[in-house]
Nucleic acid binder design. Sequence first.
DNA 1: ACTATTTCCTGGATGC
DNA 2: TGCATCCAGGAAATAG
Length: 279
Amino acid sequence: MPELPEVETIARGLAKRVSGDVIDSVWLGQKPEPLKSSAQEIAAVLEHSLIATVRRMGKHIVFDLEDNSVGPARSGSTPIRAQWIVHLGMTGRLQICEAQSEVLKHTHAIVKLASGRELRFVDPRRFGRLSVARAAEFEAGGIEPLEADLDRFLVLFHGRKTPIKSALLNQKLLRGVGNIYADESLFRAGIRPRRRASTITRDQLAALLASVKEVLREAIALGGSSISDYVDADGEEGFFQLQHRVYGREGEPCLVCKTPIKRIVIAGRSSHYCPRCQK
DNA sequence: ACTATTTCCTGGATGC
DNA sequence: TGCATCCAGGAAATAG
């Protein structure tokens, strides 16, 4: 499940491979579900655009596009800028392959590149989303955790009665943290996932911010090496190997105190914690 | 203005 | 072996 570190890794891989390439044409599947913008709008924005850069915003992959349809640099003209935004959801993948490669099941979009390759969006569960933004810069919501300072972090939770776990997952507050990294961060900070956000002390929140950054940085470092080829061909090959300390370890001994890890459900999400280490 | 719950979707795991 | 059921999860929609 791609969260911030996976999306970061994927965006870097894409940037390396497709920056500078030009989109010749776009095919979009008949199922409209994965499209946030209309198919016509997406095609209109993408076709004949040059991919300037690819970057991550929260859990979104953003392709920065420049208008290439007028041909080589007319002097004095400013390139029209737009963005193609991809959210991978749970099972979405962006695949770079040769045009003759077999089209996998659940392929919802095929972008033909001037280099002869294709960029394909494959997503069995269809939680992923494709959209475009013109003129205005795509707005992703909350703050980037890796760029947050303590003051901006504290404000997010001020007066919130919701469990801290839910607040961490709220993309309008903090963008990019998903279920796995929320649990792992809370464990490292010694905070129970059900604690009401507003009841957590400044010191504890400082520890939490440090934990969030630490976990994300570790995962990016590890993920970078293990899924660097994720966007190629069939990709997948088992996500990052960040060793989870609580996530998915229900009933197993806490790595610190040996107490069995508990699993509870918060807002429909399974949440794992050590009842002894986390208060 | 918030917060909690439901919904979308399919493949893989589980159970009888 | 086959079939039904449950579960995973991000974020939008809905309900309270």
